[in-house]
Design a protein around this nucleic acid. Structure first.
Length: 260
DNA sequence: ATTGTGGCCTGCCCGC
DNA sequence: TGCGGGCAGGCCACAA
């Protein structure tokens, strides 16, 4: 599913293939997909505007237009971005590989004849104009130890829940959270504010390491622990059977031996 | 304010 | 063989 890593690939695709192109038409075949009170006629303001920048904050993709609003794209767990029919990511988890025309939830047609499209079988993503990106915390990819410490400070919520709180730290989803905590050797159920300074630094270091690794390896599905994230799976580090539970409302797998 | 829960949505997979 | 239920999770509304 798209977490920060996949959305970063989408951003790079848009940056490489869509910038400078003028929007000639907007297709919004799924009204459910329009968020923030957006209605199809509102999208007409995009027509005639070029795309001038592709930014990302957490899992939110922001496409700047010249003279028009910012186009905000969210991908839920099954959304993907395509430019001129080429997908930004292949092989998303928890969705289908089929690419039916009906999965197209939103599209820009460019004046040069090409197009940018959002495909989302499960319809959990959405499109917004001028989204309030400041509702999100600092981006996890560039968050240093101080930012991680600030995101956790004073909280009695489970560590994992706080890591995935997009208002505190933007971009970490369920799979990345499990991978980071596994590498850092931290129990996901621990109170977020209860980490020692050394543990917080370790967590921040592994957060950066995991994101860099996953970007290099091709996606959030490429974590070390992911292959064992299944019934009967065992810890890749010490062989202990992984424990499964629900933490922060999400299915969570962790090593009961070295994650303490 | 903080934290927890349930629902949205669809496709897949299991067991009957 | 078909069918129903459970599950996946990003995000939001709502409750305590």
């Amino acid at each position: 599913m798209p977490e920060l890593v996949e959305v970063e690939y989408y951003r790079r695709l848009a940056e490489k293939a869509a910038l400078g192109r003028e929007i000639a038409a907007v297709a919004a075949p799924d009204l459910w997909y329009l968020k923030g009170g957006l209605a199809p006629p509102d999208l007409d303001v995009l027509i005639g505007c070029p795309l001038v920048a592709a930014r990302r904050r957490g899992k939110l993709l922001l496409l700047d237009t010249g003279g028009g609003p910012v186009l905000g794209l969210r991908f839920g767990m099954s959304g993907s971005l395509e430019v001129d029919g080429a997908a930004g990511v292949d092989g998303l988890l928890y969705t289908t590989d089929r690419r039916l025309p009906g999965y197209c939830r939103f599209a820009l047609a460019f004046a040069d004849g090409g197009h940018l499209a959002v495909r989302d079988p499960r319809r959990l993503g959405g499109v917004e104009l001028d989204p309030d990106a400041d509702r999100l915390g600092p981006d996890a990819l560039t968050a240093g130890p101080a930012a991680v410490a600030a995101a956790l400070a004073g909280s009695r919520a489970p560590l994992k829940a706080r890591l995935m709180d997009q208002a505190r730290l933007a971009g970490v989803g369920n799979l990345i959270a499990d991978e980071v905590l596994w590498r850092a050797g931290l129990d996901p159920r621990r109170p977020a504010g209860g980490l020692s300074p050394a543990e917080t630094r370790r967590l921040a270091r592994h957060l950066g390491g995991v994101l860099q690794d996953l970007l290099a390896r091709g996606g959030s599905h490429a974590g070390d622990v992911l292959a064992e994230r299944r019934p009967g799976g065992s810890c890749p580090r010490d062989g202990t059977p992984l424990q499964r539970g629900v933490v922060g409302g999400r299915t969570t797998w962790w090593c009961p031996r070295h994650q303490v």
